[in-house]
Write a protein that binds this DNA or RNA. Structure first.
Lengths: 200, 200
DNA sequence: CCATCTGTTGACCGCTGGTCAATAAGGATG
DNA sequence: CATCCTTATTGACCAGCGGTCAACAGATGG
């Protein structure tokens, strides 16, 4: 065998997560085996378990890293006026979905979403996105109706992005406008004063 | 052991699917083993494989049955005027989500959605729902923009229903109105003439 | 009462997720 | 340069998993 290559912890971990993302993006969870992953990383299976306690934890960490990546790349500039923040945030969101199609589809579509720990990662991400929106709106204590409306709107945005990425054939900015309009409609229905009409 | 109980094919199959729905609704896919399922059904594992070729197929059939059930229970009366069809369809949809919370969450949230065969079942269901809407609208050859808008709207409706079921605390008819309004907004953005304003 | 069909079983297999004691690379210390 | 200690890394190992299969037994019809 090749000589033992000893890597610093963080670097090795990062490499393993990259390989995990590639694997879990292209095949369903249960069709990816730890042996395969280890082989793809040129490493023994035991090492995988040295870095991640279980397969599920590994998957979760892959998801966390991907979501963190997305959150970072779509972060709006707080110095901009709110309408511009929304516009740029949506554009960045759609661009990210387009450029990371496989991972975006596989992971956000819920690779194994019925697991509570996994679902929580996605739920946390969604909450973070909605907090951005609430901050831009200047709302502090959103009631249950507003929370539901915003969460539903996020479902709209995610579905729009998924279809746009998978089917194609639609202008990106049209999709962005569509999503912004949906936000307006959702907010109006729960009586949140916001002149989003001219926001996009 | 108990004497061999011989059942007619269809009945046994139906029972197995019921048990599968209960199992897959309460635990993630990979935490449900065929041995457990067989034991829960009071049956040998071999029999499970006599009815369904693989675990994945079994899961798919469970999903198909659940989706079929939902489709049947939310079917609108075509004799009603379209606005009323929408109203009743949404009400039935939300009621179904509430009354079948576990299955609705687990299965539509995508138990193992990254598998193409499984994803297709959900995709087919969504297409069927959208065809109802298109029929009610009188649209025959929807362009890509309209398809995307409607698909995004369905994401809105699904997310709204999920949150409503899981969090509670919001009036059902408010959720229904919210979803109807979102449909209006989505359609207006892609320039589909439809006076949905007074539809709900 | 036999023959056929088929719902049903239990033993079996390769592989999977997960464990663990043993090992060796490399920096620190003298 | 030898030593030591830490820890990244391995490979053998295990119970349980998804899946297979030959054999069995309850109906059904002649």
């Amino acid at each position: 065998m090749a000589a033992r290559a000893r890597f610093p912890f963080d670097e090795r971990r990062r490499r393993l997560l990259e390989i995990g993302l590639a694997a879990f993006s292209s095949r369903p969870y249960d069709e990816v085996s730890m042996d395969q992953l280890a082989a793809a990383a040129g490493v023994s299976k035991g090492l995988l378990y040295h870095y991640f306690p279980t397969k599920r934890d590994f998957y979760r960490e892959v998801l966390v890293a991907a979501v963190e990546d997305m959150r970072r790349l779509t972060e709006p500039d707080p110095a901009l006026p709110p309408p511009e923040q929304l516009r740029m945030g949506l554009t960045a969101f759609l661009d990210y979905a387009r450029d990371h199609a496989a991972g975006f589809s596989a992971l956000l579509r819920g690779g194994i979403g019925s697991d509570p720990e996994i679902a929580r990662v996605v739920a946390d991400f969604r909450r973070a996105v909605l907090e951005r929106v609430l901050r831009a709106l200047g709302v502090v204590g959103p009631g249950p109706e507003l929370q539901l409306a915003l969460r539903a709107w996020l479902g709209f945005a995610e579905a729009a992005a998924l279809v746009w990425v998978e089917e194609g054939g639609v202008d990106r900015d049209l999709v962005g406008r569509l999503i912004a309009r949906a936000l307006h409609a959702a907010l109006r229905e729960v009586a949140v004063p916001m002149p989003v009409e001219d926001w996009y």
